[in-house]
């Protein structure tokens, strides 16, 4: 894939991916052919800032976990009201990394 396209992808989506995986993603994209560009640009990544805001204000209802696709944990948080608030507070610190990991998992399907 063209370096310009790869750099544009990384600039647009780099913040949505785990920092330590960005160089690997860049290498993989450079080795891919241009035919996958359309599918790659259509990927909808979840925003870590949105997830953090949902976690802070609605975390006790599990909305943050539902947002990133962790339905099991979302239901668990809903049933326990964020683990009586404890789980909700812990997720304030974990949710950004969790979002980035989920985004990376989504991208991996295209990198293989």
């Amino acid at each position: 894939m063209e370096q310009q396209k790869v750099d544009m992808f990384i600039m647009t989506n780099g913040a949505n991916l785990p920092e330590q995986k960005v160089p690997f993603v860049r290498e993989k994209l450079l080795s891919m052919d241009d035919s996958k560009w359309g599918a790659l640009s259509a990927i909808q990544f979840k925003n870590p800032t949105t997830a953090l805001l949902l976690s802070i204000f609605l975390g006790c209802y599990g909305v943050d976990r539902f947002y990133i696709g962790n339905t099991g944990m979302g239901v668990g948080k809903l049933l326990t009201c964020g683990g009586c608030g404890i789980w909700a507070i812990i997720d304030w610190f974990l949710i950004s990394d969790a979002v980035k990991e989920e985004n990376y998992k989504k991208l991996q399907a295209y990198l293989v």
Partner: peptide
């Protein structure tokens, strides 16, 4: 009362009363 929803928003959650 340990429910954050009740404490902050004064609305009981689905788990209240469990």
């Amino acid at each position: 009362t340990v429910c954050p929803s009740k404490l902050i928003y004064h609305i009981p959650c689905a788990g209240c009363g469990t």
